[in-house]
């Protein structure tokens, strides 16, 4: 957990500027999104909302004290505004990336970014750790193939938001997060669903990639379990 996902989730909340009491919306309840939600809760956020549509992931979000939001059932932007007196969340994290897609499976690389801007309040902070790439030859349209997304910059600028993005500098956080675990204040392994020998990696990839129910995080053990 300390090699990537816990520091990366923490980094998303750092870039967003999460402060005690804040309302926070997280797009994506994969391992990094769940770690971002967990980090926000550890930091004392007043309300954490996690948007996804996989019930196993949303259940984990609920178990750690976040509000699950199923975007195949409700409009997540409206939901967040309803939960925040119409203002939008104080902070938002994007933990999905360029392969964001609608419930039908069609990719919209700008979907979570624009929802993020829309559901975070004026002068709010955004942390984007979902992966975006300079080129994506397999992308759904010409713009995305050149690594460009139709971002609602006007709305973002008008709202005076700030955004941090990119990969996490793990060493900035891993010592502190290790000590949170060692001190019994954090247990990020709550999301691990499968521990497999190396030989079963193909099965792990297949099930994790197809979002099979219950496959929330796969740990491989090359040296045996």
């Amino acid at each position: 957990m300390l090699a990537d996902i816990f520091p990366t989730g923490w980094h998303a909340t750092e870039m967003a500027g999460v402060y005690p009491g804040d309302s926070v919306v997280i797009y994506g309840a994969g391992p990094v999104g769940l770690m971002a939600a967990y980090s926000a809760i550890i930091k004392g956020a007043g309300k954490v909302m996690v948007v996804d549509r996989q019930n196993d992931r949303l259940k984990l979000a609920e178990e750690i004290g976040a509000i699950p939001v199923n975007d195949s059932e409700v409009d997540p932007v409206e939901f967040v505004k309803d939960q925040t007196l119409g203002f939008g969340a104080d902070r938002g994290c994007e933990c999905v990336g360029y392969q964001a897609h609608d419930p039908g499976g069609t990719e919209h690389p700008n979907m979570t970014l624009n929802r993020l801007v829309d559901s975070v309040r004026f002068v709010g902070g955004l942390g984007v750790v979902g992966v975006f790439l300079p080129q994506d030859p397999g992308g759904p349209d010409k713009l995305e193939q050149q690594g460009q997304v139709a971002f609602d910059y006007g709305n973002y600028w008008f709202k005076g938001q700030t955004m941090g993005s990119g990969q996490c500098p793990v060493k900035k956080y891993n010592r502190a997060l290790r000590d949170l675990i060692a001190g019994g204040k954090a247990s990020p392994s709550f999301l691990v669903s499968h521990e497999l020998p190396l030989d079963q990696a193909p099965e792990g990839y297949k099930n994790f990639d197809s979002r099979e129910d219950g496959w929330t995080k796969v740990v491989l053990h090359p040296a045996g379990t």
Binding site: Y98, F208, D209
Partner: peptide, 14 residues
């Protein structure tokens, strides 16, 4: 290596 996780970012590559 005793543990090596599969990451969501591995899936973009996969």
């Amino acid at each position: 290596i005793t543990s090596a996780n599969i990451c969501g970012s591995d899936l973009h590559m996969y």
